[in-house]
Amino acid sequence: MSLAAGHNQGAIPGARFMDPSVLARIGNLELVARAVVDGFINGMHKAPYFGASVDFAEHRGYVPGDDVRRIDWKLWARTDRYYVKEYEAESNSNFSVLLDVSKSMNYGSGAITKLDYAKILTACLTNLVHHQRDRVGLVTFDDDVVNFVPSSAKHMEVVLHTLENVKAGRPGSLKKPLQKLAEHFGRRGVLVVISDFYEEPDAVIDAIAPLRFRGNDLIVFHVLDKAELDFGFTDASAFEDIETGEQMPVVPDAFRKEYQSLVRAHLDALQQRFSANRVDYTVLDTSKPLDHALYRYLSSRSRMMKVR
């Protein structure tokens, strides 16, 4: 692959993934997503949890009222008992990405902003799921729902087109748009929330948790810039909040330790609360390749399948 920027052999041996900053220079998200997913799949083609979407699940004893066509006659012949075959309920599930497009997502200390990173991630995930014949959809939100693409097997291009045109323009909040969406996602499916979560952990959980109430599988990607994590500034400056315009004089050398501990506490709190709510939570550093996120997603799906 000529576009390969490097090898990341620490995550998955043999897999080659692309540097986000290189991907950001490619305007066509479809091409980006295909390149990433193809590369990812090539590295994972023997993975045991990747294959048919309609799988046998288990047998259970026949009870009157069950469809007699579902009785496993071969098992009856061996055991002289009636058993009914049970399969995966949804072979073609709904997959939607809930993408935060608030102004704070428009920050990037390096070559790529958090929003660009999130867009590439969304495109990759959507492309990956589309390969599985699942229905894909997209919701963008800031302090309200901005774009809504319903889940459909035919909406891959619409999703990519919407992603292309997404701009971060307004301050954001989680509660209001996610409440609306929680009421909307009635059918069970997979929901991926991508945001920088600049709210208190309890407020985040309050906003996110209702999405699970209808039985949706919830995966949360917390996208942060490297500078937001390690606060590696050197010069004393007036720091301006991108969303509110508020300014504060900051001496980074003096702030750094305290800031890092506050961020770490925030992430730990989110991790703890999401775990308690059985939400898969991953922190993504925009300076790192995308393989981590994809691998996280797929392993999450595998784990959930095993749980069933």
């Binding site: 704070s104 720091f239 300014q247």
Partner: peptide
């Protein structure tokens, strides 16, 4: 003067605001 000479855009001052400014300055 050194504090005012440059404006640094930042996604949120949520954590920065919690650090006492006066003593630092």
């Amino acid at each position: 003067q050194r504090e005012k000479k440059m404006v640094q855009q930042f996604p949120s001052l949520m954590f920065v605001r919690r650090i006492p400014y006066q003593t630092v300055r």
